Simulated scan of single mutants.
Amino acid sequence: MKLLAITALLVCASGHLYAQGVEVSNAWVRTSVQGQKATGAFMTLTAKEATKLVSISTPIAGVAEVHEMKMAGDVMKMRALPGGLDLPAGKAVSLTPGNYHIMLMDLKAALPKDSTVPMTLLFKDAKGAESKLELKLPVAVSAPGGMAEHKH
């Protein structure tokens, strides 16, 4: 299996990152306090061709997984997506609080506001080719205003 590591990123003024046919926008990590063991990371992913987000790694957490939250009757349930997250061609997939998101567990330290979190996303395309995307996500209390919407 061919692994293509993407280390050079193009950061546009709009806060979008592009690599290997996947656009990442509105990316951020929720703050945490000392002793807190989990938090979430959120972003919008748009792939040019059908792709799958298969894994996430970061040095700040012992475990990083794509999770799904959904209602089961009157109970909100959260579970890991063991096969990864499908990214249909040309369709934006939002990872947001209360929906799909990246769960960061076994945090090694508190994540204060205005710090950054290094994160590596591993994608696999329909042909089985893998690519990595290295990110530095801002830490915030909530979705940063300038990243949550475009103002003209």
Results as ranks from 00 to 15, higher is better:
Leu9Pro: 03
Lys52Arg: 15
Pro59Arg: 13
Pro82Tyr: 07
Lys91Tyr: 00
Tyr18Phe: 14
Leu3Val: 08
Asp86Cys: 04
Glu23Met: 15
Ala5Pro: 03
Glu49Gly: 04
Val93Thr: 08
Lys132Gln: 14
Arg30Pro: 05
Leu133Ile: 07
Lys113Val: 13
Glu134Arg: 12
Ala109Arg: 15
Met105Asn: 10
Val11Tyr: 12
Leu53Asp: 00
Ala19Phe: 05
His150Tyr: 09
Ala38His: 08
Ser131Lys: 01
Gly128Cys: 05
Leu10Glu: 10
Ala61Ile: 14
Ala19Tyr: 07
Val117Cys: 13
Met69Tyr: 00
Thr51Gly: 03
Val24Lys: 05
Gly83Ser: 10
Thr116Val: 12
Asp74Glu: 06
Ser115Trp: 10
Gly40His: 09
Ala47Thr: 00
Gly128Met: 02
Gln34Val: 00
Val24Gln: 01
Cys12Tyr: 11
Thr116Phe: 14
Gly145Lys: 15
Leu95Gln: 01
Asp114Pro: 05
Leu104Gln: 07
Val33Ile: 13
Glu134Val: 06
Gly40Ser: 08
Thr31His: 08
Ala72Asp: 11
Ser57Met: 12
Ser131Val: 06
Gly21Tyr: 02
Ala80Asn: 04
Leu133Asp: 01
Pro112Ile: 09
Leu121Phe: 10
Gly90Phe: 03
Ala13Glu: 13
Asp125Pro: 04
Gly98Met: 09
